[in-house]
């Protein structure tokens, strides 16, 4: 599912966020990327969803070598990808349901079908009762689950999450992680960046980053 080889990311100014990473994540894995803050977890996730490009090395996701992709091709790549951002990036000018259906509107699904699938996604994360609520009225855990609903509404085969439990109380964090586990059970490949790998349920793959290098 993901094959990285000699992946390096250097930012302008010389800071080397990732150095010579090589790893594989198989389809169906529940992978945790862990490390102290500043170790390069977020950078690696940004490379995985092609928000940033590596300085050198190759990174094949879903059979496509990301560094070689043209900018025009990126939107279509991202459509097969579910991403839960660190700051969630929910839109506060519309209801939870409208947030969840945004990816479907983008691909131009008929409104009825989008509505139906967004409801199904909300149902999966236990937010169907709050579909009309504005995200700002949701609790931290509910917002995170809404972000997950939006990430999975496209039925992606790969789900990326950046510190999805960072600002949640233990109970909410447990619910969120269980959701990821549930998606993993139906063969969705999960990659979670976290500073607390012990909380990840049943990880099949553990990558530990230390100052941009991979610790075996």
């Amino acid at each position: 599912m993901i094959v990285a080889s000699h992946l390096t990311k250097r930012y302008p100014g010389g800071h080397e966020a990732l150095r010579d990473l090589s790893f594989e994540i198989a389809a169906g894995d529940m992978a945790a990327i862990c490390g102290h803050s500043g170790a390069g977890k977020t950078t690696l996730l940004k490379l995985l969803c092609a928000v940033e490009r590596p300085t050198s090395g190759s990174l094949v996701v879903n059979g496509q070598n990301l560094p070689a992709l043209k900018k025009r091709a990126l939107p279509y790549l991202r459509r097969n990808l579910g991403v839960v951002f660190q700051d969630q990036k929910l839109l506060f000018d519309r209801s939870a349901l409208d947030n969840a259906r945004l990816p479907l509107d983008i691909i131009g699904l008929p409104s009825r079908e989008a509505q139906r699938r967004a409801r199904a996604a909300l149902d999966k994360v236990g937010l169907l009762a709050r579909e009309k609520a504005n995200p700002i009225a949701l609790s931290g855990g509910e917002q995170q689950r809404l972000a997950i609903a939006r990430a999975v509404v496209n039925r992606p085969s790969l789900l990326l999450a950046d510190e999805p439990t960072a600002n949640l109380d233990p109970e909410a964090a447990r619910q969120v992680l269980e959701l990821f586990y549930a998606f993993n059970q139906v063969r969705v490949t999960i990659v979670i960046a976290t500073h607390a790998p012990q909380t990840i349920p049943h990880p099949t793959r553990l990558l530990t980053l230390d100052h941009g290098r991979l610790n075996a």
Binding site: C49, V51, R72, P75, Y76, L77, R78, R79, L81, V83, F85, K89, L91, D93, L102, P103, I106, I107, R150, N154
Partner: peptide
């Protein structure tokens, strides 16, 4: 915000 999010989730 909306434009940024839309970009990130695959809007052309």
């Amino acid at each position: 915000d909306e434009i940024e999010v839309a970009r990130l989730i695959g809007a052309t």
